[in-house]
Design a protein around this nucleic acid. Structure first.
Lengths: 243, 243
DNA sequence: GCTTGTAACTGCCGCAGCGGCAGCTTCTAC
DNA sequence: GTAGAAGCTGCCGCTGCGGCAGTTACAAGC
């Protein structure tokens, strides 16, 4: 009658959502009017996308249906918004791919992850910084004082800066262009805020951009050639600043 | 480095999405730069919501990434729209519940399933019509000539008519009100189009609305009291028509 | 060389909501 | 009496891993 398969009804019995009125000595499940009515309620809630466990809560424990529905709607809207922004991101990615394909600039596409370093823990960073022990120490002390949220914010900021540099590169600016150099200067200021850096050290860091596979991979994940671009920009910066 | 757990990497190996560069004699998985780069691609696609099997197809079989992304976007938008209409439906349901709660008309809520009879096959209908053998036969012959789509359209129409009657009831019209009687008249015309019906038979059908548990359940699923309302309306119709 | 702590491994259960199958029993109809 | 339909139990499958148990391997300190 309800259009549900027997398998589904058995499932609803298994999870206790809709036990039959009685079970014959032959094991057959017999349903009566009361179950039909409850099933209709179940179907309505299910059609609204409410989960079966939630439906069981509402029908069983007499949880307030209205409140449950409002909760459910919030989840629906949140999920819809998530898909919406996701679709927008996909749309931009498609546009980027199309443009780069048409321009013949085959691979200037820029990936825009929210947080490239998501999940990379300070310990991993130290690992990557082993070529620069003093900086590793300074970085460790700095992160130790930060909350998890602050750390993540910093990671997102670094990712965003890398994306910004990729945009400058995609726009065709040479590594020693004014816009690029001011970007690098901001990075340099942030770096020296942690600890003073000699020119020699700075050049070594620049080389690491392409030579340290982990750093390089991170840059290349944003845009192909970005690691070399960052290195060139840093070297240009170092050359222009005898200090 | 990537922030993925070891468990996840093992999973990706299991499903063949990202096999390690080599597996040592000790069973350990070793990854190299190439895998890191591929992993970055995987993460980007995953962040876009592409499924793992789809990602494997794109990276493995060199399926056109652009086309795959467009497909994926269609799915995203379709899902978003589905959630959107779902949220709107939930919103209406919430409003209905709130109104009926405020008015003190405690349970005049009307369920509006798209097709209450979805999945009910003609055989089931015959079952319900066993009290009226000639009509069962007539109904069988009529449905035998119809396509599946026509049958479903008819079911949706009947559901819609029941919802309409529920609205008349909720609006407070007595069973013998003009609007209700003209609704019943339309039903009567549709019924007699199949086969002539005596007044006796018609009264018997009216009684079935509340006495046949299956019919009753269907009415009650739309709105409480609807079965009795339909019966009363039909009896009033029969009384007003001595023919 | 031995121990200890850490980390890697395999393999299984769990999640939502059933679909689908195998293999068995029961009902219904001729 | 018998055939066919329909009911039953129980297990695997899907997605994308998380979590646990039990085992082995490696790095570091004594």
């Amino acid at each position: 009658m309800s259009g549900l398969t027997a398998r589904t009804l058995r499932h609803y019995d298994e999870i206790g959502l809709l036990p039959p009125a009685r079970i014959g000595s032959n094991g057959h499940r017999y349903y009566e009017e009361r179950q039909l009515l409850q099933l209709q309620q179940i179907l309505v809630l299910r059609a609204l996308g409410v989960g079966l466990t939630e439906i069981a809560r509402i029908l069983g424990d007499q949880v307030d249906e209205l409140e449950a529905l409002r909760d459910h709607q919030h989840r629906l809207l949140a999920e819809r918004d998530r898909l919406d922004t996701l679709a927008a991101t996909v749309s931009r990615t498609i546009a980027d791919l199309e443009r780069s394909r048409k321009d013949g600039t085959p691979m200037t596409s820029i990936n825009r992850p929210e947080n490239l370093f998501e999940g990379i823990q300070p310990a991993d960073v130290e690992e990557s910084l082993r070529d620069f022990p003093e900086h590793a120490e300074a970085a460790r002390r700095a992160t130790a004082a930060m909350s998890q949220a602050e750390i993540e914010a910093g990671q997102r900021e670094r990712t965003a800066r890398m994306v910004h540099l990729a945009e400058l590169m995609a726009a065709g600016h040479p590594a020693d262009a004014e816009a690029v150099q001011s970007h690098i200067d901001a990075e340099y200021q942030a770096l020296t805020a942690l600890r003073t850096v000699s020119v020699e050290e700075y050049r070594a860091i620049a080389r690491s951009c392409t030579e340290n596979p982990q750093w390089s991979a991170a840059y290349e994940a944003i845009a192909p050639g970005l690691a070399a671009y960052q290195r060139a920009a840093m070297e240009a910066y170092a050359a222009a600043r005898p200090a």
